[in-house]
Write a protein that binds this DNA or RNA. Structure first.
Lengths: 211, 211
DNA sequence: TTCGACTTACTTAGTGCTCGGTAAGCGAAT
DNA sequence: ATTCGCTTACCGAGCACTAAGTAAGTCGAA
């Protein structure tokens, strides 16, 4: 209605149609992620996503092709976050990475939805023919490789005892963090994720350095 | 057709109608558990369960009331298995319990379906109003209490270092075992659950005794 | 011991609703 | 003139669940 709403090319206040559509897509992904976290992929209908996003169902499908396409878009976006964190970690010295764990937990706590999304989607992707299966397999392998690499370099630097298998320990570390997160999501009153991860970080430090 | 098919009261070869129905119910629960493990609770339809069980959909509902009732029956039955294991563990001396972990993993490996069922259902029960939520909250609290109790008694017996918090360590142990199981279910080729749990049992022993 | 009332374990048929997805078209932007 | 970002209208299939009935089994009273 106001003049500012009129399209003015090359002005930051008047984004192109493409740009507006991209933003819309982004909004839809955020909304879908919330719903997938709450009710799972299978438990969420396109109609629900469409209603919350203020769009029609076919409007949704215009952007994502089909329901699995929407899931993959959600996963991809969540991955960007994860990647940013991984890069941040890799930018630190190996010794500092351990100390960053509780900070990671603290950050995750503020975004419980994202954590829940991850937990729910992994469980729904256990079967080999599930839409996200391959993605999560790849992702976990990459995570283990990164953590194992960190351990290996810490061993070479003499910061970590030589007697442990980096791959096995990597799986164990990721398992513990995932498992604590699940217990916290299920019963936040009984399990405080930050305290639990802090406690585990101490366990881990003793373990890695050999008491 | 044969005389043995005729109802003969008080004969083992001719179970009462009640008994036959109970067996039928049991069969249905096993079938439903398989499907829930593969496709999740939400991803499984009553029609699928009914078809595999060779019964009609309303026939199913006659036994379980509604879909959530079927889920609860499945969970309850799975619990009986878990309880048997817990009792077995509690029958051992605290020091022996640690050594039993890999055996537990080995046994679980043969029953991957049961493990998958558990992982999938927990994820689907994270939301407070999910049909199985309360059950799993209670169950995890009980598990933590049992493990914490074991640690505490081991501390009192001088087998375990005094400096650790039994509740926190219990959550951590359960988290690690759960997390390893999830990684194995997702990618059995990359993660061997038995080796991983054996390795963790050694980690844990060092941790508990204080190296 | 037999008979009739009741219960149990289902079935057939069908409910209203929701599901993911498609076809066709429209108006505005490019 | 064409493409883009949508909408309206619609589809068949599948969903959990219900109503009503049936045949067989169970059981108490005559």
């Amino acid at each position: 209605m106001s003049p500012a709403d009129q399209p003015l090319r090359d002005s930051p206040s008047a984004p192109t149609r493409r740009e507006r559509a991209r933003q819309r897509r982004e909004e839809i992904i955020v909304i879908a992620a919330e719903l997938f976290a709450e009710r799972g992929y299978r438990g969420t209908s396109l109609a629900e996503v469409a209603a919350r996003a203020g769009i029609t169902e076919p409007g949704l499908l215009h952007h994502f092709g089909n329901k699995a396409g929407l899931l993959l878009a959600v996963i991809e976006r969540r991955d960007l976050d994860g990647e940013a964190f991984a890069l941040e970690l890799l930018g630190m010295e190996p010794a500092a990475r351990l100390r960053a764990l509780p900070e990671f937990a603290r950050r995750n706590k503020d975004r419980a939805g994202l954590a829940k999304l991850f937990t729910v989607l992994v469980a729904e992707s256990l079967e080999p023919d599930a839409p996200g299966h391959e993605h999560f397999v790849t992702r976990y392998r990459a995570m283990r490789a990164i953590v194992a690499g960190t351990i290996r370099s810490a061993q070479e630097a003499g910061l970590t005892r030589a007697g442990l298998d980096p791959e096995a320990k990597a799986a164990e570390i990721i398992a513990t963090l995932d498992g604590l997160q699940t217990q916290w999501l299920l019963d936040p009153e009984a399990v405080d994720i930050v305290t639990a991860v802090e406690s585990y970080a101490r366990t881990l430090e003793r373990d890695l350095t050999g008491s």
